[in-house]
Design a protein around this nucleic acid. Structure first.
Length: 442
RNA sequence: CGGGGUGUAGCGCAGCCUGGUAGCGCACUUGGUUUGGGACCAAGGGGCCGUAGGUUCGAAUCCUACCACCCCGACCA
């Protein structure tokens, strides 16, 4: 695709409202456009990244046996009155009325709705466990939206819900998500650490936040360096293996602000391993038993006895992750963003030196483009008649991991192949393709 | 919701104090010269000055109200 034909409105100046890197960058390269406070349109470049993240999240949910559904954004107040949260949720819930003057709301989360779906569908313990997820827009009317997509009012989120007969089964489900989350963030090239967390308005007593380290994060965290070395690659979907994994993590003191206890921290973490920094919450899992099933009467028959199902819920902020990845991957030192291969909007940018009287580089670029395309490498050609250095700068901003520069330094069939944060090599197109393919596989 | 601030071209800003019908940089268009880390020359186009009302011969500028957005704090994926 020619760059000139893409909808990528680049700004040379930082919009003044953007204070953190991800917000600045997303506005500057035209990934998003603000429409109201905390509400954004997603433009092609940003939407492409978000869809790739979404797909990875989806695949990792499917892999642990969670089934995808899609619930509406607009919900009736009735079920929220049943659970008691219609009053509890407060101003953050966007309440609306339909033409019959019925009280509706734009869902900030879906425990009630999914519980209603479950209770009207299943009556026997034999139907358990059930694990369901959906990826849908949510709305929370934040007191103060900020940081662009990171703390906004309308956001895209994966939320999953588990239904089990017993506490023990429910913890097995919980642990499946625990593993699934570690794998998801790993594929996004993030090291997210699970931390004991407060349960907030969702309720319950068992909960982990998944946090990635970043200076601009809003959560204060206290953890142990050694937690980064816990290896989940050998864990399998088995009760024992999963609970072992959680134990390995829980060996280390690792909490957010609200659970922090100074004495405990200093007692359990030797000084050289202490990490006290800031992080971004990208996932949160909760186990809350019958907190919703009881008031909403979601129960199954177990040998003639009525058992309220034991539930958990599991969220990943899909839209937030777009910003979070930038915060984590942007290199302040050289001012370069490099998208992880798994979510990059394009794998490679071909940057030919062009002028009106000599389009031979553009013609070469098109041939290379076709070749790379045949290898499933997503590429764009910058067909603008612009100063070559201006073009390179532009792509350094966008963060596409590889640049293929077709200019005066090309030698025959050897072209400059530049990794955005690394070295430039002179290679044949075949070798360029195989390097990119290799990078995509990691 | 408390405190502070800002609304002037797509983005960044000046002009407002001291009223006379809008300007700069970048971006954009056309032509030309260029081409290795955001080039140069020339000629252009683009603005209900956030909205409404008021004062005035005259309002971007003064007054009032409203709206929007941003920042700092208390809450959250």
């Amino acid at each position: 695709m020619f760059f000139s034909k893409l909808f990528i409105p680049i700004l040379k100046n930082n919009p003044s409202e953007a204070k953190i890197k991800s917000h600045q960058l997303m506005l500057r390269v035209g990934m998003i456009k603000q429409s109201s406070a905390g509400i954004y349109s997603w433009l092609p470049l940003g939407f492409k990244v978000m869809k790739k993240i979404e797909q990875i999240v989806r695949e990792e949910q499917d892999r642990v046996g969670v089934q995808e559904i899609l619930m509406p954004t607009i919900q009736s107040s009735e079920i929220w009155k049943e659970s008691g949260r219609y009053e509890d949720y407060g101003e953050e819930m966007l309440r609306i009325k339909d033409r019959q003057n019925r009280e509706m709301l734009y869902g900030p989360t879906n425990e009630e709705l999914v519980t209603e779906i479950f209770r009207s569908s299943f009556k026997s313990y034999k139907s358990l466990p059930q694990l369901l997820y959906h990826i849908q827009w949510k709305f929370r009317d934040e007191l103060r939206p900020r940081f662009g997509i990171m703390r906004c009012r309308e956001f895209y989120m994966k939320d999953a819900y588990s239904f089990d007969l017993t506490d023990e089964d429910a913890k097995f489900s919980y642990n499946k998500f625990f593993l699934s989350y570690l794998k998801t963030f790993k594929r996004l090239n993030l090291s997210a650490i699970p931390m004991a967390a407060d349960t907030g308005p969702i309720g319950g007593n068992l909960s982990h936040e998944f946090i990635i380290l970043a200076d601009t994060g809003e959560s204060k965290i206290y953890t142990d360096k050694r937690i980064f070395d816990v290896d989940s690659s050998k864990t399998i979907l088995d009760k024992v293996s999963l609970s072992l994994l959680r134990k390995q993590y829980e060996k280390f003191y690792s909490v957010t602000d609200e659970k922090f206890n100074k004495d405990e921290f200093e007692k359990s973490v030797p000084e050289e391993f202490r990490v006290n920094t800031k992080g971004i919450e990208v996932g949160h899992i909760f186990y809350f038993g019958d907190k919703y099933s009881k008031p909403m009467n979601a129960a199954v028959d177990f040998n003639g006895k009525k058992e309220f199902v034991k539930m958990g819920s599991y969220g990943i902020g899909v839209s937030r992750l777009v910003g979070a990845i930038i915060e984590a991957k942007y290199n302040d030192k050289d001012g370069i963003m490099k998208w992880p291969m798994s979510v990059t909007p394009y794998d490679c940018a071909i940057i030919p030196m062009i002028n009106k009287n000599d389009k031979s580089n553009l013609e070469k670029s098109i041939k290379i483009y076709d070749f790379l395309k045949s290898k499933n490498i997503e590429t764009i050609i910058d067909d603008a008649d612009e100063n070559i250095s201006a073009k390179i700068k532009k792509f350094n901003l966008i963060g596409i991991p590889y640049q293929l520069i077709i200019g005066s330094k090309s030698e025959g069939n050897l072209y400059e192949f530049h990794e955005i944060d690394g070295e430039t090599q002179k290679l044949k197109v075949e070798d360029i393709a195989s390097q990119i393919i290799k990078a995509k596989q990691n």
